[in-house]
Design a protein around this nucleic acid. Structure first.
Lengths: 146, 146
DNA sequence: TGAAATTAGTTGCATAACTAACTATATGCC
DNA sequence: GGCATATAGTTAGTTATGCAACTAATTTCA
């Protein structure tokens, strides 16, 4: 019998089910209750830009695991809210570099506490080794499928 | 220092990031390549109905961790494709029981192999105890947030 | 009994997802 | 140089998600 035989649906439920939905909703709710008008998807884009500013849209696709049209529209909406700007690359005119505005830089500080607080709430009773296991499993799953 | 202090964004990336996206895409792709015209979201509803037929929409909300409008529209689309039928409950006229059609019952057999195959692909190199850890962590996270 | 509160489901609105098809720029190669 | 190919990003169409506000049926309880 194969080592990895699971009941149908079970992996899907584990990976795309209750926990991811619950965390996403809670984080969104915490943003909203603090008067922050951004979605968690927009936040996840900003998160990568805070780590490294002025990435191309393609690079944001790679880092957020989204496809190109998704990033196009997320950037559209972030631009409407004046949180990022598209800047044409000098060296390759096909490329839009997505750069943070000062407003977005302010937002970083405001969201750190909310994100940490949400994580800490979510992880009560979970030990660090188990989180490491989750990360390793998810990395392996990702590598297997891409 | 608190036991559960993580870098901001990290939990979000772990739980809503690469692995769930990759699994969802692969499963959808495998459905499509086999000529199955259903989305993974629709499939996840059917999955619960295969386990127990004729659930109310509210019960499907609980089991799939979706809100009521999401279920309303998923059922709308499943009904258009003649995979389920809404049946008014005799005992409580507010309730729609969502029941499988014969076509949906056929679909169950066709999708089992695809789901198992996708899971096995995804889980190469992952041992059972680690999957159990993931499940336990996710259950704990869900319980913490609901 | 009858008004208030609860529960099941729907509708409207905004955002986001994926696919496919498209434009524009850049690169490779003869 | 110039044509084929690849890459970056956009647009169109369908489905899905979340919230708020709504209708209809049921339950609670004074």
């Amino acid at each position: 019998m194969p080592n990895n035989q699971f009941k149908r649906g079970e992996l899907y439920s584990v990976i795309n089910g209750m926990a991811s939905t619950a965390v996403a909703r809670r984080l969104q709710k915490n943003f909203r209750q603090s008067g922050l008008e951004i979605t968690i998807e927009q936040w996840s884009v900003l998160y990568h830009l805070w780590k490294e500013d002025c990435l191309s849209q393609q690079e944001l696709c790679n880092r957020t695991f989204r496809d190109k049209p998704s990033i196009t529209r997320l950037i559209d909406n972030l631009e409407k809210q004046k949180l990022v700007k598209r800047v044409a690359s000098k060296s390759d005119r096909r490329i839009n570099l997505v750069c943070l505005t000062d407003a977005a830089k302010d937002l970083q500080d405001k969201t750190i506490d909310l994100a940490n607080q949400t994580m800490n709430e979510a992880l009560i009773g979970v030990n660090k080794e188990d989180i490491e296991t989750v990360k390793l499993v998810f990395q392996q799953v990702y590598d297997n499928l891409t």
